[in-house]
Design a protein around this nucleic acid. Structure first.
Length: 821
RNA sequence: GCCGAAGUGGCGGAACUGGCAGACGCGCCGGACUCAAAAUCCGGUGGCCGAAAGGUCGUGAGGGUUCGAGUCCCUCCUUCGGCACCA
């Protein structure tokens, strides 16, 4: 018998599939039945190097789902593309001296070759790359639609600025408040940046999580990221000038009477203005400049709270009390209103600050027994709190007080109930070369003018020096930057920032549906037929940003009438990370397992099989080199058994066989394996245990070689059929040798329920919950008969000796427990 | 600090709604085949006691509920992930 030659078989079948174009799934024609369309998608790879085994696991999972669904009568779209813009490609290019476009193209070619070698069922007619002008033309088009809708905007945003190098610094380039390169003190500066108004969608992004089937932990992460809080906005006014309004957001309006001071974030527009003309002016200005240079991490790392008194006071609207206004960096500008009322008795951070600067602490809520206890313990509060020192509201419960005070503020025009979100607008501009150009021009007369649709794409200029300099490298391409204003025709300058790569990946799953469209990003009807994605599969590291941004884009495009669905990904499966030699697999640690060597040694089928056998796919797993050999052994065994069967008995694929004679057990086992594999793949995504079932079936074939040839053929054919989604090459080859053809079109096997029923069941017999024996009983045996047989077991009798059975428990088909005293 | 996930043999893991813990695979031990090796096949493999039958302990720790707990409840420990001065 010939040996199992994985390479020959894999080459043969990959050619057959390509020649017959079996993975190409065209769009439905008008009038086609779209009820059996399915869209299976894995997150697209970043073409920074070669694929590693984490990719193998990810894409094999999607492939198993695809092949399985196709054989269950679904028309499955399974596309692939590349998230090709971005920093890693650019950094690699700077290092190697290769232009990012060239490096990216080479990487894509290598990855495509690897993917084909793995035998994944990818529809290459839908392939896309986000750095391709034919793609990013439409990224720009969508950007312009969002701009028109007011969902893209430009505003000043604080950045770190090195006054010597005259450049913007990334947070990582600031060390101890100093420039990494020249060591000069970093300053806070405002720069014009582009944003998407994702905060407009905060509530919907939260609410619609109800309608997707996603892992709970991902939903939780998204909820926390959106961070909805209910509370009130309360308007304080400056004591020296009541026209100056200073609203705050608080979740504890019930503690309003406990506000003993007031704090502005250093970036607050009123901070410097308030201090002006007081003796504290210089100190406040100094504080604002110093803290502005610190990163968020450094601010947090300070052991003590810091701040500066402005010399001014505001009036507490609820009792007319004047309280001092401070500036302190523990208050964040981009949450709430950038200002807070400080209630040190009931907020840990305010308490700390009050201690530091000796400010008064006044409790206004107390446990219902009225015992206040230690000062620092006020902040610990519970449900049964009652307001004290709170004027007309004294005596109310905290919950009641919250509502009553908010209502009072609304009546008096001094505040209102309000919801705040932690979610911030999406800063999308990047001062880097390798990204999608933002399609606007800056005109001295007309301001920001969008590039007309018919002039898209604004192509990335081919420049020599794309190293980052703080400002975008594009600014150096003077020929490209100089343009004319589409509105007035006068001289204008192009926007030189590029887009965050997350923009590119926020709509790619729509483009797959209609990849060659050159009149629009996609046709609405086609996209609506395929989307939302039925099954999305990818790494949990994208649980927040990518998934949130894609959801935002989908909702915005829905509102603009371009798509008919509000959530992009109906079902999400997040795969765990792969560990190797005890650490997360990563290039920097040098412990990356590249599939190529494994494919060269064992073939793609073995590699695919092992990638899903390592453990539950949603959990982290340790890659074990030895485990791969075990899967190869399994395939070689299947190879031998099937070929041996064909040699001895001739080919044949029986539809069904009777469970009698020497192979009765084998036939039952075959149906059991069908049932188990079907449930594990189709319902549970338990790819590892589905494989175990096929292992057991193959072991069964090996043990029952004397069964009727028809029974052996049936078991062999079924094992081949069940392993096909995992190891399609060897499965197609063996199927052919068994006399079948086009296994990929053969309906998935169905277990015969009658064959799953057994006529004899083994009962475990327990005495007082401890196992004392086993009995075999006919499946339909009466409880009384089971009990009688159980008591009959000699070892059971030993343990019952001298005791009375006080309770008898029979779990039908499973166990008997005799409770004895 | 807050939120979430997970702790089971030498290792990866199985046990779906509370019902025989350790399926399947790796590794290891023994045997067959072989001059020998590889490959393959057969058998064994949680700890302790025992020649065996069998007994006993055992799913991170400690309690609880139950006839019965890896699974449910409480307290705690460890690891990993997310968020992190969000008022």
């Amino acid at each position: 018998m010939e040996r199992y030659d994985a390479h020959a078989i894999e080459a043969k079948w990959q050619k057959v599939w390509a020649d017959e174009r079996i993975h190409e799934v065209p769009n439905p024609a008008p009038g086609d039945d779209t009820s059996r369309l399915m869209y299976v998608l894995e997150m697209l790879p970043y073409p920074s190097g070669e694929l590693h085994v984490g990719h193998v696991k990810n894409y094999t999972m999607g492939d198993v789902v695809t092949l399985y669904r196709r054989r269950n009568g679904w028309r499955v779209m399974h596309p692939m593309g590349y998230d090709a813009f971005g920093l890693p490609a650019e950094n690699a290019a700077i290092k190697s001296g290769k232009h990012p476009a060239i490096a990216t193209r080479e990487n894509i070619e290598a990855i495509r070759r690897q993917m084909n070698r793995m035998g994944w069922s990818i529809d290459w007619t839908r392939e896309l790359s986000t750095s391709d002008p034919a793609y990013y033309r439409w990224t720009q088009w969508i950007f312009l639609r969002l701009l028109e809708a007011g969902l893209a905007y430009r505003r000043e945003s604080p950045v770190k600025w090195c006054p010597v190098d005259q450049t913007v610094l990334a947070n990582e380039q600031v060390i101890d408040g100093r420039c990494e390169r020249c060591g000069s003190e970093v300053e806070a500066k405002s720069l014009e940046q582009w944003f998407f108004k994702i905060t407009d969608y905060a509530q919907r992004l939260l609410d619609d999580l109800e309608q997707v089937h996603w892992p709970e932990r991902v939903v939780t992460m998204q909820r926390n990221w959106i961070g909805r809080s209910e509370g009130a906005e309360v308007v304080f006014r400056a004591a020296h000038d009541p026209s100056i309004e200073l609203p705050v957001f608080t979740t504890r309006p019930d503690t309003l009477f406990g506000a003993t001071f007031f704090v502005l974030a250093p970036e607050h527009p009123r901070a410097l203005e308030l201090a002006r003309g007081t003796e504290h002016e210089a100190a406040v200005a100094d504080y604002v400049r110093r803290t502005g240079a610190l990163s968020a991490v450094e601010r947090l790392a300070e052991k003590k709270k810091t701040g500066a008194f402005t010399g001014r006071h505001v009036v507490n609207p609820v009792n007319g009390e004047e309280i001092p206004v401070w500036v302190a960096d523990y208050v964040l500008m981009d949450y709430g209103t950038g200002a807070i009322m400080a209630v040190p008795a009931h907020d840990e951070r305010d308490f700390e600050f009050a201690r530091e600067y000796d400010l008064p602490v006044r409790p206004v809520v107390a446990p219902s027994d009225g015992e206040l206890g230690e000062e620092s313990a006020y902040i610990a509060y519970s449900d049964d709190e009652v307001l004290i020192n709170s004027g007309q509201f004294t005596g109310m419960s905290a919950t009641e007080g919250k509502r009553a005070i908010t209502e009072w503020l609304e009546r008096e025009g001094k505040g209102r109930s309000r919801v705040a979100f932690r979610l911030r607008d999406w800063l999308l501009s990047r001062q880097r070369y390798w990204g999608c150009p933002i399609p606007v021009v800056h005109c001295p007369t007309d301001g920001i003018v969008p590039v007309p649709d018919d002039q898209l794409p604004v192509e990335l200029p081919d420049i020599e020096d794309y190293a980052p300099k703080g400002r975008s490298p594009l600014a150096a391409a003077e020929d490209w930057v100089q343009t004319t204003c589409p509105r007035c025709g006068g001289p204008a300058r192009r926007e030189t920032d590029t887009m965050d790569t997350f923009v590119d990946s926020s709509w790619y799953f729509m483009r797959y549906a209609d990849p060659d469209n050159d009149r629009a990003p996609f046709d609405r009807e086609v996209v609506d037929a395929w989307l939302p994605v039925d099954q999305y599969i990818g790494g949990v590291e994208h649980a927040i940003l990518h998934l949130m941004y894609a959801r935002f884009f989908t909702k915005a495009l829905y509102d603009l009438g371009y798509v008919g669905f509000v959530e992009p990904f109906e079902n999400l499966f997040t795969q765990g990370m792969i560990y190797y030699l005890g650490a997360k697999m990563s290039k920097s640690k040098g412990n990356v397992v590249v599939p190529d060597e494994m494919v060269a040694r064992y073939g793609a089928d073995t590699t695919r099989l092992y990638s899903l056998f390592l453990g539950p796919p949603d959990q982290d797993a340790e890659w074990q080199d030895g485990g791969v050999a075990g899967q190869h052994r399994f395939l070689a065994r299947l190879w031998r058994l099937v070929n041996d069967t064909v040699e001895r008995h001739g080919p044949g694929i029986p539809e069904s066989v009777a469970a009698d004679g020497a192979g009765a057990e084998l036939v039952r086992k075959t149906h059991w394996a069908i049932d188990k594999a079907t449930k594990d793949i189709g319902e549970r995504f338990a790819f590892n245990t589905a494989q175990s079932a096929v292992h057991e079936l193959v072991a069964g074939i090996q043990d029952a070689r004397d069964a009727d040839p028809e029974q052996v053929r049936f078991a062999c054919a079924t094992a081949v059929s069940l392993i096909h989604p995992y190891a399609p090459h060897i499965a197609c080859e063996l199927w052919e040798r068994l006399g079948g053809e086009r296994l990929w079109d053969v309906p998935w096997p169905a277990a015969d329920p009658a064959m799953l029923a057994v006529d004899t069941v083994t009962y475990a017999v327990q005495v007082n919950g401890r196992l004392r024996g086993q009995i075999d009983m006919p499946a339909e045996a009466e409880q009384a008969a089971v009990l009688a047989a159980a008591r009959d077991v000699p070892n059971v009798q030993n343990h019952l000796d001298g005791r009375t059975v006080v309770k008898e428990i029979v779990v039908p088909g499973r166990l008997v427990n005799l409770v004895a005293k």
